[in-house]
Computed example of a mutant assay.
Amino acid sequence: MTSATAVVIGASHAGVQVAVSLRQEGWTEDVILIGDESALPYHRPPLSKAYLSGKSSFEELALRSAEFYAKQRIDLLDSTVTSVDRDGRRLVLATGETLAYNKLAVCTGARPRQLAIPGTGLAGVFYLRTAVDVELIRKAAIAGGRVVIVGGGYIGLETAASLRQLGLDVTVIEAAERVLERVTAPEVSDFFTRMHRREGVDVRTGASVEAIVGDGHVREVVMSDGESLLADLVIVGIGVEPNVELAADAGLYVDDGVVIDDHAQTSDPDIVAAGDCATHEMGRYGRRIRLESVPSAGEQAKVAAATIAGKPKTITALPWFWSHQFDLKLQIAGLNTGYDEVVLNGNPTRDEDFTCYYLRSDELIAADCINRPRDFMFSKQVITQKRSVDRAELAATVTA
């Protein structure tokens, strides 16, 4: 081992990008990328979409080829880190072995939030986060089967669309009064509910699950109002929780994520963090935010690598997200937190393409663009540049 080793914990989008960017920033010493899955690091967004629906193979999901890592001298280590000794700058692995580092990147990601009701341990109950999860779901997802999806967020709706396309009878249960309630305006929620119901998905809002029942294997889902829904499989998608235990045990500052500054630096000068496990004060929104977003993970990772390499950059990019459901491509620019006005371009009660612009104090802060890539690019530019907007122009194509 050389005298200057950079170790990255976590081999998903953020971790891989840190390793790649280190080489791009001129880091010539050892780079070790630790992941707890035996497969090559892979894209996660397609898991609930193209991969689940059988439209792509696992090989197509690889972030980089094995040859790439070898050529870039990025050592892949299939292991789990159990503790971080910051004073000795040493990691303890699950095997009991130790690994020294000079610079460390924490990219431990997040895990599915668990559903706290009876019956979640039955066979046929799944969470969707890894390729192995999807492979198990695909084996259980037989055409004509009945699936209940708990959670009407993006992961739940994407999974519903994929399984419906595979010919399953799909029911989505959402405890809130509308799907996507936490992240979209009512008009957008109503649109996705309409589209899913048109495709045969039974969407139930303001409903909650009391228990999952079966004899070893799931048989039915019992609702809080007493109704029972027959089910051959149940998929839980009620959000994620950041994997911060390793960082917290090491004494890093943690607050709903590993806290980082504008340079992806943690409270330890030799440790950076990026991705779903990291939380960052965003001046644009006036608060600390943990973004569960591949684009944001990538940007944080590039900044983290630059910090390690002694070439500090700043996290500045506008957050953006996307979702694919059936033939719908939703692209989201910015965060709509605190919006006080919505302007629609298009008619979501009739059309399959429209944009929902979110304003706060007359400033455009976010946009949901459904099958409107030009509006998405326009919105990113306007929000980033804080340009003034003309409501009449934004709403130009709205019809009664």
Rank of each mutant, 00 (worst) to 15 (best):
A274N: 04
G257R: 10
D262N: 14
S293E: 00
V258E: 13
H263Q: 10
D268L: 09
S293A: 00
A278M: 11
A247V: 03
I260P: 00
V258H: 13
L318C: 14
V303P: 02
H280D: 05
A247M: 08
A297K: 06
K302A: 05
I315W: 06
I260D: 04
V303W: 10
D255A: 05
R284F: 01
A248P: 02
R284G: 01
E245Q: 04
P312S: 07
A250E: 08
T314K: 15
A305E: 05
S267E: 11
V303E: 03
T314F: 12
Y253L: 14
G275T: 09
L318A: 12
I315H: 12
I308R: 02
A304H: 01
D249N: 06
V259R: 14
H263W: 07
A278N: 08
L291M: 10
A273Y: 15
Q265K: 14
E299F: 08
A301C: 07
D268E: 12
V272M: 02
E299G: 14
L252T: 12
D249E: 10
G257Y: 04
G298N: 10
G283S: 04
D276I: 05
H280R: 06
A273L: 09
G257K: 11
K313N: 05
L246W: 07
A301V: 12
M282R: 06
A273N: 10
L246T: 05
I308G: 00
V294I: 15
I271K: 08
P269G: 13
I308D: 00
G310S: 07
V303A: 01
G298H: 10
E281P: 03
G286V: 03
K311C: 01
D262I: 01
G275N: 09
A264Y: 09
T314W: 07
I271C: 01
D276S: 01
I315L: 15
R290T: 02
V254T: 10
A274Q: 07
A306F: 01
T316L: 13
Y285I: 06
H280F: 04
S293Y: 03
V259Q: 13
